[in-house]
C-alpha cells in the first residue's frame, strides 16, 4: 500500500507547479491551465485524505470542485475571447491600460 505521505507530496508538487505556472506564464490560457492544475492538486489531496481517514466527505468535496472548475473554465475562456476581440492578444503584458 502506498503511504499517504506520497500522495500528499504529489499533490503539493502539483499545486506548486500550478502556482509557479500561474505566476510566471504570461498567456491567459496557460494561466487558466495552471489554475486547473492547482485545483487538481487539491482534488488529489482530498481524495487521498478521504481514503485514509475513511470518510466520504473529501470525495464529495472533490466532485463539487470538479464541477465548479468546469464552470470556471467556461467563464474564463469566455472572458479570454472578449479580451482577444478587443486587443487581438491574450498576453497579460498587453493588458496594462488600467494602472496608477
Amino acid at each position: 500500500m502506498i503511504p499517504l505521505s506520497w500522495y500528499i507530496a504529489l499533490s503539493i508538487m502539483l499545486f506548486c507547479v500550478g502556482a509557479c505556472g500561474f505566476l510566471t506564464r504570461r498567456n491567459v490560457i496557460i494561466m487558466l491551465l495552471s489554475l486547473e492544475l492547482m485545483l487538481n492538486g487539491v482534488n488529489l489531496n482530498l481524495v487521498a485524505l478521504s481514503y485514509y481517514l475513511d470518510s466520504v466527505r473529501g470525495q464529495l468535496f472533490t466532485f463539487f470542485i470538479i464541477t465548479v472548475a468546469a464552470a470556471e473554465a467556461a467563464i474564463g475562456l469566455g472572458i479570454a475571447v472578449t479580451l482577444y476581440r478587443s486587443r487581438r492578444s491574450v498576453h497579460v503584458d498587453t493588458i496594462n491600460q488600467l494602472k496608477g
Binding site: 491567459v28 479580451l83 486587443r87 493588458i95 491600460q97
Partner: peptide, 12 residues
C-alpha cells in the same frame, strides 16, 4: 474600453 481587461484581472 477597459471592461475585458478588468474582467481578466478579476478572474485570474
Amino acid at each position: 474600453r477597459w471592461t475585458s481587461e478588468a474582467a481578466v484581472k478579476y478572474f485570474l
